[in-house]
């Protein structure tokens, strides 16, 4: 993925600083048929977003480095990422409400594994259905 090859289909970013949480999100996305890459800080996330065009970005709002809502603004202003679905995860209900219009989905933490897996599966491009239940 480091070379400038086109991003593979069913590719996703998990931007989450809590490693355990990231592990669960990563597994949920894999179960939904995505190839996921975990990023644990805002600065790296910003760099990687500029390089790839994932189908899904799971975005935690509370991040070291660059804040999650700033990343969200950046993603939404980037034409390349027009079709990228952003799933925001946060524990802050008020913040979640304020971002409802900008993200495809806002999930209030704690996010359940099955919930995320089912939701992510919906965003999978239909032509790429590769035998997932």
């Amino acid at each position: 993925m480091e070379e400038k090859a086109p991003t593979p289909k069913n590719f996703a970013f998990v931007i989450e600083d809590d490693e355990d949480q990231a592990y669960v999100f990563d597994s949920a996305l894999r179960m939904a048929g995505f190839d996921a890459e975990t990023i644990t800080d805002g600065t790296t996330a910003q760099k990687r977003i500029a390089e790839e065009v994932p189908q899904i970005i799971i975005l935690d709002l509370h991040l070291p480095g660059i804040r999650g809502d700033q990343l969200l603004q950046q993603i939404r202003s980037d034409d390349r990422l027009e079709n990228t679905q952003v799933i925001v995860t946060t524990a802050d209900a008020a913040l979640a409400e304020s971002l409802e219009d900008e993200a495809a989905l806002v999930l209030l933490k704690p996010v359940s594994f099955t919930q995320l897996s089912t939701l992510a599966a919906r965003f999978r491009p239909p032509q790429e259905d590769s035998g997932q239940p």
């Binding site: 355990d20 949480q21 999100f25 524990a91 933490k109 359940s112």
Partner: peptide, 10 residues
């Protein structure tokens, strides 16, 4: 919440 979320997810 955070550790609980991880426990639940895993």
């Amino acid at each position: 919440r955070s550790p609980l979320g991880a426990i639940l997810g895993i």
